[in-house]
Design a protein around this nucleic acid. Structure first.
Length: 272
DNA sequence: AGACCTGTTTTGGT
DNA sequence: GACCAAAACAGGTC
């Protein structure tokens, strides 16, 4: 699921594959995926080239050779990028394709159509309008504490809220709370200073680890909770082994918090 | 008013 | 073949 680490990897991918090539056309299979009118998108971008990238949370911005023409990409839950040459190699679900004059293409893959692409003219204005908070890797402990401290809701939905801190999705929040030993239903305004520090460290650890392993979950350290998720292609034969806490061997609980599937260790992540 | 919570959207994989 | 997963936003409640 493209959360901050996956979007960072896609950013690096786009940066190494698709800069400094002139855009000839954009092929769009389903216009619902666009947040900008199709004709405007094509006429604005034709003849231009991508020159750099920027990421905030799960949002990828691709800057062009015109300062106020920026492509915004959001990868939804299954979005991906693939750079390819021949149209015969067009990947499945490449519903938006940036065609370059050199014959290469950048495909934006959208299997579930939860993805969005559009033009913006100013990144800061966009972030403000969308109420996107500081990036998970850029936020300081003080800033994090300040923002969480005033919320009364459960800590899990608070961490999922992109206006508090940007880039954390469902599995990352579970992992962060596990690493910080905080119960997902702990009320945000009851956290101690120690816990804010643990939370900040955990966010850093989880995001950095995910980026280092290019978000390939099975490669993550054994100390990670993520291995209990069934969609982790287990490298081990005994799938049952993954249903237990990697630190204390207690059976991991699966519940719903704020309408989202939640995994946690009932022994190490207790309320109060 | 504002904080919080729930429902809807979308489709492929199981 | 029904059901689940996900993020963001709309709409609801108190």
């Amino acid at each position: 699921m493209p959360e901050l680490p996956e979007v960072e990897i896609r950013r690096q991918y786009l940066e190494t594959s698709s800069l400094h090539q002139i855009i000839a056309n954009i092929d769009v299979e389903d216009r619902k995926l666009l947040t900008t009118d199709y004709t405007t998108l094509v006429t604005t971008l034709a003849g231009r080239q991508f020159i750099s990238t920027h990421r905030v949370g799960k949002n990828l911005f691709v800057l062009t050779d015109s300062p106020d023409i920026i492509v915004h990409m959001h990868f939804g839950m299954t979005g991906d990028l693939e750079y390819y040459h021949s149209s015969l190699d067009r990947p499945r679900f490449a519903r938006i394709v940036f065609e370059f004059t050199n014959g290469f293409n950048l495909g934006f893959l959208c299997p579930r159509k939860f993805e969005r692409v559009g033009l913006i003219d100013n990144i800061d204005a966009f972030l403000k309008r969308k109420k996107i908070g500081p990036d998970g890797l850029a936020i300081s402990v003080e800033e994090l504490a300040e923002r969480i401290y005033q919320k009364k809701a459960f800590i899990k939905p608070v961490l999922l809220d992109q206006s508090i801190v940007a880039g954390l999705g469902n599995w990352i929040v579970d992992e962060v709370l596990f690493q910080a030993c905080i119960h997902p239903e702990r009320h945000a305004n009851t956290l101690t200073n120690d816990q804010f520090n643990q939370l900040h460290n955990a966010i850093w650890l989880v995001l950095k680890t995910a980026i280092r392993y290019e978000a390939t979950y099975r490669d993550f350290p054994n100390s990670f909770l993520i291995h209990v998720r069934e969609w982790d292609d287990s490298p081990y034969d005994d799938v049952e082994a993954h249903k237990f806490c990697p630190r204390c061997s207690t059976r991991i609980e699966r519940t719903e918090v704020g309408g989202r599937t939640t995994f946690f260790c009932p022994k190490e992540q207790q309320l109060r």
